[in-house]
Amino acid sequence: MMNVEPSPTIRRVVFGSAVYDFFVTAPFATPWTADAVLSVTRSLHQWLGLGGELPPPFAPSHLVFVSLFGTMTALWAVVRLLRPTRFHGTLDMVGRALFSLWMGVALARGASHVLVGFLVGEMAWMVALAGVLARHRSA
């Protein structure tokens, strides 16, 4: 791997995606906050009359896995906040493609359409990262 400083544009986009991730996923980092966020998603699903299955209340064992996701994603965001490199941007773009795929699978299997909000965010940052990485290939 080359030790080349990324362009300022790459740094800004990678940093911006990290800020987004931190604020979206940090609330999932503890079982208590994750439970509160999931309760809000259930309420939104009902209030907006969204399609798909109503998200169920989670048992403590489910919340452990949700909190693992929240903790690891928030920590990944911190890595990119401290070092917004081309390499980290590339990994993030691939991760967003995978998250988007899994969200699409969940939606196809009947998950609550509240998931669409998260999917739009993932896909928007994936496209932004892909665009800036493609435009600045030598950086």
Rank of each mutant, 00 (worst) to 15 (best):
S112G: 15
R109W: 03
L107Q: 08
S100T: 08
S112L: 04
D92A: 13
L115D: 11
A108V: 09
S112K: 05
G104L: 04
V105F: 08
S112W: 03
M93S: 06
T90P: 03
V94Y: 10
L98V: 15
S112V: 00
H88V: 02
G110P: 06
T90K: 06
A111E: 07
D92K: 07
V116G: 00
R109L: 13
G110M: 02
D92C: 14
W102L: 15
S100Y: 05
V105S: 10
L107A: 05
A108K: 11
S100K: 06
S112R: 04
A108H: 13
R96V: 02
A106K: 06
H88Q: 13
V94Q: 10
G110R: 06
A106M: 12
A106G: 08
A97V: 13
G95L: 03
R96K: 12
L107G: 02
S100C: 05
A106T: 03
H88S: 09
V114M: 08
W102I: 14
L107I: 08
A97P: 06
M93R: 00
L98D: 08
W102S: 15
L98G: 11
L98N: 12
H113P: 07
L101G: 10
D92Q: 14
G104P: 03
L91R: 06
G117F: 12
H88W: 09
A111L: 03
V94F: 12
V105G: 07
A108Y: 14
L98W: 12
G117W: 07
W102K: 13
S112M: 05
L98I: 15
G95R: 02
V114S: 09
G95V: 02
V114D: 08
G110W: 01
L115I: 08
F87V: 10
H113A: 14
W102V: 14
R96D: 00
M103I: 11
A108L: 14
W102A: 15
L107Y: 04
L115Y: 13
M93G: 00
T90Q: 10
V114K: 04
L101E: 00
H88I: 04
L101A: 11
A106R: 07
A111Y: 05
R109S: 15
V116T: 04
S100R: 05
L101M: 07
V114W: 09
L115K: 05
D92M: 10
F99R: 08
L101R: 00
H113F: 12
T90M: 03
S112P: 10
L101D: 02
R96F: 03
W102H: 13
F87A: 11
V116W: 12
R96P: 01
A97E: 07
V105I: 14
V94G: 14
A106H: 05
G95A: 04
A97N: 10
R96Q: 05
S100G: 14
V94W: 09
V94L: 15
L107N: 04
L91S: 01
F99E: 09
F87N: 00
A97G: 13
L98P: 07
G110A: 02
T90C: 03
V94I: 15
A106F: 09
D92E: 14
V116A: 04
M93C: 07
G89D: 01
A108N: 14
L91T: 00
G104N: 05
A106L: 10
V94T: 14
